[in-house]
């Protein structure tokens, strides 16, 4: 009993997920249909990619609010690049999307990381400014208009499904899900198994100790921000691919979902602890809530309120557990 209680305390997010699924399942049988579950798996991918990057910077003791704008910028740039290759096929389209995403991510992440690690700008303010800058640039270069006219192959990563059957002519497994699982798994391993990952935890736990243990704190901090931006950009190109055009207004306020997912998945806002794998449970909770509310036809305005409340609850629970430990 004692053990079970402890497990529940440490795994609130899993319990929440199960409870939500049961509630929505009872409320609407469609929830547990194969079609809806596949939908869910594809809907949560963009947030999963973003939340993965957020886990790195939050463990480092920082934050990255710029991810929504950064993702939109990467999306429109990948659309512009895509227009240059009208003959792309499914394979080359993925390369085009990933390369443009990574390129934008490197630049934005370097700027964020450099200002935060070397010029000591507060992460919250730095990335808030960067959110405006990236979003603004996305609007400037598109003139505020979506980038249309992309070949169908461009949508392969975001919208296609593999293994087509008679009952499911559009295919079963979403390509975006496969892509996300691979990327997230790699990022999970990078954080949990490598020396670099250990250094991320050490810097987030205590910068002085990390520095005096021979760790290049500035470099690790900067790398963390580059990872966050690159992940946001991968999310952004997936979002653009999904709708087959580049929207400068895409991924609006997605930073909130990503931060909420990371925190719900046990990433500590004071830094030093967290895991990509666990953050995925947070991603699932957010996706289930949105999906469930859609099925119950709750207006998207109310959905905003609900998500906000959930973020606050997650942070309150996080803090309560911290206080109990101390």
């Amino acid at each position: 009993m004692e053990k079970a209680k402890k497990w529940v305390g440490e795994n609130v997010v899993i319990v929440t997920l199960v409870v939500l699924c049961i509630l929505f399942g009872i409320g609407n049988p469609v929830f547990f249909s194969v079609k809806n579950i596949l939908n869910l798996l594809s809907q949560m991918c963009i947030n999963a990619l973003m939340a993965t990057g957020l886990v790195y910077v939050i463990i480092l003791g920082g934050i990255d609010i710029s991810v929504g704008g950064t993702a939109a910028l990467a999306g429109v740039i990948s659309a512009f690049v895509g227009l240059q290759f009208p003959g792309m096929n499914q394979f080359t389209s993925i390369i085009i999307l990933v390369v443009s995403g990574v390129a934008v991510g490197l630049v934005v992440g370097f700027l964020n990381g450099f200002m935060i690690a070397y010029l000591n700008v507060v992460p919250m303010i730095c990335t808030l400014a960067m959110l405006n800058i990236t979003r603004g640039i996305a609007y400037v270069i598109t003139g505020g208009q979506p980038v249309y006219g992309l070949p169908d192959a461009y949508a392969f990563l975001g919208a296609s499904r593999l293994i087509k059957t008679e009952s499911m002519p559009n295919g079963i497994i979403p390509v975006i899900t496969i892509f996300t699982v691979i990327v997230v798994a790699l990022m999970h391993i990078l954080l949990s198994r490598t020396v670099f990952g250990r250094h991320v935890y050490a810097v987030g736990s205590n910068k002085s100790v990390a520095h005096l243990s021979g760790i290049n704190v500035k470099k690790v901090t900067m790398t963390g921000h580059i990872i966050s931006s690159v992940m946001a950009c991968l999310a952004g190109v997936c979002a653009a691919s999904k709708i087959q055009n580049g929207q400068p207004g895409a991924c609006d306020s997605y930073e909130m979902f990503a931060i909420a997912s990371a925190v719900m998945g046990g990433t500590s806002l004071i830094g030093g602890s967290g895991s990509v794998g666990r953050a995925m449970f947070g991603v699932a909770v957010i996706a289930v809530i949105k999906n469930g509310m859609d099925l119950m036809q709750i207006s998207s305005y109310w959905q905003k309120v609900v998500i906000g409340v959930i973020i606050l609850l997650a942070v309150i629970i996080d803090m309560a557990q911290k206080n109990k430990k101390d």
Binding site: T194, N206, G272, S273
Partner: peptide, 25 residues
């Protein structure tokens, strides 16, 4: 690192010399 494990504290400065070719601890 007060919130970390004994083993993680002990190994911290020595990690770079105890990793495999792809950087795993």
């Amino acid at each position: 690192l007060l919130k970390k494990k004994i083993k993680e504290n002990i190994s911290l400065p020595s990690l770079p010399s105890h990793k495999n070719s792809i950087g795993f601890v």
